[in-house]
Amino acid sequence: MEDSAAVMLKRAVELDVASRFQESLVCYQEGIELLMKVLKATKNETKKAHYREKISSYMSRAEDIKKYLEKEKEDGKYHKQIKIEENSKGFSYEKLFQDYLNETVTEVWVEDPYIRHVHQLYNFLRFCEMLVKGSCQLKTIHLLTSYDEGNGKSQQISSLEEIQQSLEDFGIKLDVTYSSSIHDREIRFSNGWIIKIGRGLDYFKKPQGRFCLGFCDFDLRPCHETTVDIFHKKHTKKP
């Protein structure tokens, strides 16, 4: 475990030096946790003192990075990129979006050309459920998508109308607009945060079966490879 902690903390320092602070913070936190377990298992008082000193030093740096990132978020300069690897797990909508949803969010804009097929419509429904359960005071969801080009058009429209009616029970309006020219995928919150996902909301793989882990809990569902970029609208303004 000591070797694992050393490897993780070495990586944290390398990322820190490279100014990749978000990734560095995660490595610091994981490395510190491992080192604390080593400390608890150590009987030698000299080694204990050494580990305590190291832990204190790394915790101090991690706290500085955390404060820096919080300031960046407040100033709208924060930019986080998440690379979701093929078949990786733990990337539910809650995990991606919850840090950027707060009580000031009243409107959400979703631009995604592929809210068409049944599984994509279910993805959008899951996304809406996540919003409803969040701490935001949501009033309106705006969806810009494209019509299904095949035989599923009527099902697409009726499914979105059903979601629309269901949201009304929670005091939320769903405004759906269709466009034949939309290509980009983007999600925007009224508090200024913008999330761009390469695959839009459709980055989960098909479950292996209806009774397999991951069918209901998206944190356990394998993902397709994609990239997520998160930034504030202030970040896009020219000085």
Score class of each variant (00 low, 15 high):
V108G: 02
L143Q: 05
E86S: 12
I32N: 01
F204M: 04
K139A: 09
Q208A: 13
Y122S: 15
I197H: 04
C212T: 15
K237W: 12
G134T: 10
K153F: 10
N87K: 12
E111N: 12
V118W: 12
E72A: 00
Y93F: 15
Y78C: 01
K206D: 13
G200S: 03
K43T: 10
V26P: 02
I55S: 04
G31Q: 01
L69R: 00
R61Q: 06
D112I: 06
L131Q: 02
V38I: 03
V26W: 09
D202G: 07
D175H: 13
I32R: 00
Q29E: 12
N123S: 10
N87L: 14
E111K: 15
L220N: 09
I32F: 02
V228Q: 01
D202C: 08
F170I: 00
K89Q: 11
S190E: 05
L69G: 00
K237S: 08
V17W: 08
K48W: 08
N102Y: 03
E74F: 12
Q120R: 06
K67I: 03
T140N: 07
E186R: 15
Y93C: 02
P207G: 01
E45Y: 13
D169F: 15
I55W: 08
I55C: 01
K77W: 05
L174G: 04
H235K: 13
S135H: 11
E14Q: 14
S158L: 09
I84A: 02
A5C: 05
I182V: 10
V110P: 00
L220W: 09
D229M: 06
G198Y: 04
L25C: 00
C216V: 14
I163C: 03
Y28G: 02
N44L: 07
R221I: 04
Q208I: 14
Y203I: 02
K206N: 09
N123R: 13
E70G: 03
I197V: 07
L125C: 11
L101Y: 06
M130G: 02
G90V: 02
D219V: 00
